[in-house]
Simulated scan of single mutants.
Amino acid sequence: MKKTIATLIAGLFATAAFAAQTPATTTPTATTPAVAKAEAKQEKQAAKAEVKETKAAAKADVKEAKADAKAEVKEAKADAKETKEAAKADVKVAKAEHKVAKTHHKAAVKAEAHKDTTVAAATPAK
């Protein structure tokens, strides 16, 4: 049992020592430009995606603003139409009232004239 434990500990130290060694100097310089190139490519793609998202958001904002403006114009037209119809109704009522007043005035004038002729006919001429 002591031998097994000693072997395991020795293996552990050997693995740790082997892992601590630095790799050869030719390998990092050969892979560094490739890694940098890949990272630059990823950054470029991320920037493109961000620009694309920004454009889509701006486009959606413009579309929403257009829809809001359209709705406001539609509402203003409806209000104008309602106001116009109310004004037409007011004019119609005013004309009807004027016609009634004119008819009453004519009737009053006619009655006054008839009253005058009746009174004149009833009084004997001297």
Score class of each variant (00 low, 15 high):
M1K: 01
T4W: 10
T4G: 06
T4S: 12
T4Q: 11
T7F: 11
T7R: 15
L8R: 15
I9M: 04
I9F: 03
A10W: 02
A14M: 15
T15Q: 03
A16I: 14
A17P: 05
F18P: 04
F18A: 12
F18R: 02
A20H: 15
T22A: 15
T25E: 14
T26E: 15
T27D: 15
A30L: 11
A30P: 07
P33K: 04
P33V: 07
V35C: 01
A36P: 04
A36N: 12
A36W: 07
K37E: 02
E39L: 05
E39S: 03
K41T: 13
Q42G: 00
E43L: 09
K44E: 12
Q45V: 04
Q45G: 00
Q45L: 06
A47M: 11
A47V: 12
K48A: 15
A49Q: 14
A49E: 15
E50I: 07
K52F: 08
K52W: 02
E53K: 08
T54S: 10
T54D: 13
K55P: 03
A56E: 14
A56M: 06
A58C: 02
K59H: 02
K59E: 15
A60F: 08
A60P: 02
E64Y: 04
E64C: 07
A65N: 10
K66V: 10
K66R: 11
D68E: 13
A69R: 11
A69L: 12
K70T: 08
V73Q: 04
K74F: 01
E75G: 10
E75K: 15
K77H: 14
K77Q: 15
D79M: 00
D79F: 08
T83I: 06
T83V: 04
K84I: 12
K84D: 15
A87M: 05
K88H: 03
K88W: 06
A89T: 09
V91L: 13
K92C: 00
V93I: 02
A94T: 00
K95W: 01
K95C: 07
H98Q: 04
K99T: 09
V100M: 03
A101N: 07
T103Q: 09
H104S: 03
H105A: 13
K106N: 09
A107H: 13
A107K: 14
A107F: 04
A108L: 09
K110C: 06
K110F: 05
A111H: 05
E112G: 08
E112C: 03
A113S: 12
H114A: 12
H114D: 14
K115Q: 13
K115F: 13
D116E: 14
D116I: 12
T117N: 07
V119T: 13
A120Q: 07
P124T: 15
